[in-house]
Design a protein around this nucleic acid. Structure first.
Lengths: 154, 154
DNA sequence: GCAAATTAATCAGGGCACTGAGTATTTCAG
DNA sequence: CTGAAATACTCAGTGCCCTGATTAATTTGC
C-alpha cells in the first residue's frame, strides 16, 4: 500500500538505461571489449602517455576500477605500461598498434550502435537527452567536491 | 586524432548518471541498503508473496542478480523465503516486520534524495528527463524480446 | 502413464564500481 | 637535510550485472 512508483525514480531509470545499453553494446559492438574499456582506449588515443589516475579521471573511473580495466587491456595486449622515469610512482600508458586498430574498429561500430540506441528520439530530443543527463550528473558530482572554484574567500 | 567525444555517447552518460546516483544514495539514503535492494523491498510491499523470478522481472534484475540480492536481504532478516506448496520449484517471498520498517524509513529518505538529485532541472525538464530515458530504455529492451504483442498472424 | 520440453533456482566465471587499508615514491616544512 | 604530508598505485572486501551450465520440479505430448 505504501509502495512507490519506481518509474519516477531517477536512480532506477538510470540503472535500466545502463542495462539496456550494456545489452545492445554486447550484440552490436563487441563481446570482448566493454564500453568502459573503449572509453579508456579513446582517452589514450586523444592523449597518449597519460598516467593511470588521469585516465581514470578523464573517463570517470575510480582508482581501483581503472587499475582493473587497465590490467585487462594490458593482458589483451592493447596497451603498454611503463614507469615514468620522472616520477617513480606513476605508470605511463600508451596504446599498442593492436590497441589502435581495435579503437578504430570499435569507433565505427559504436557510432552505429548509438544511432540505433537513440533512434526513438528526434534530433532535438537527442540533444535534450544529453543535456538533461549531463546537468544532473554534473550537479551530483559537484556535491562531492565541495566548492573550489569561484567564491573567493574574503 | 581519431578520438571521439564521449559526452555525446549515451552509454557513457548513462554510466556517469548511475555513478552519481550511487554516491548520493550512499550519503543521503543508506550505506547498508542499496538502491536495487530497496526496489526489491518495494516490489514486495506492492505484491507480497511474489516468487523470486517475478520480483526480478518487476525491478529489472536477471535471475542471477536477483538471487544474490534476495539472499542478502534474507541474511539481514528483511524478508522470508518459503517453498511454494503449490509449485515446488518456486520460493515465495514476503517482507518481515523489520523489512516493512526499513522500507518505510527509506521511502522518506529516497524522496528527499530524488529532490536533491533532480534539483538542477525545472519541473517540465524533470518530466522530459523521465520520458526520454524511459523511451530509450523501453525501445532497447524491446530489441531483445522480438515481437510478441500486436501484429496478429493471419 | 511417461518421456520430453519447460521452468525456477543455483553455481561458476568474468567484469564494473566503491571503500578502507597498505606500500612506495615524491614533495614540503622547518 | 630530514621527518611529515601528499600522491600513485595495489590489495582485500562487498555488491551489482551478465552469460552459460546444472539441478530439481512441473507441464505437455503422445
Amino acid at each position: 500500500m505504501a509502495a512507490v512508483d519506481l518509474t519516477t525514480h531517477p536512480g532506477h531509470l538510470a540503472r535500466r538505461l545502463q542495462q539496456a545499453h550494456y545489452l545492445l553494446w554486447n550484440t552490436m559492438v563487441s563481446e570482448e571489449i566493454t564500453s568502459p574499456q573503449f572509453a579508456v582506449l579513446n582517452a589514450l588515443v586523444a592523449e597518449p602517455g597519460l598516467d593511470q589516475r588521469t585516465v581514470g579521471e578523464r573517463v570517470g573511473l575510480d582508482r581501483s576500477t581503472i587499475a582493473e580495466v587497465i590490467s585487462r587491456l594490458g593482458r589483451r595486449g592493447l596497451l603498454d605500461k611503463v614507469r615514468d622515469p620522472q616520477d617513480g610512482r606513476r605508470f605511463l600508458l600508451r596504446l599498442t598498434d593492436e590497441g589502435l586498430r581495435t579503437h578504430r574498429k570499435l569507433t565505427v561500430r559504436t557510432a552505429r550502435m548509438n544511432q540505433v540506441f537513440l533512434a526513438p528520439l528526434s534530433a532535438e530530443e537527442q540533444s535534450l537527452f544529453f543535456e538533461l543527463i549531463r546537468r544532473v550528473a554534473d550537479a551530483a558530482e559537484g556535491l562531492r567536491n565541495p566548492a573550489e572554484p569561484a567564491a573567493a574567500p574574503r
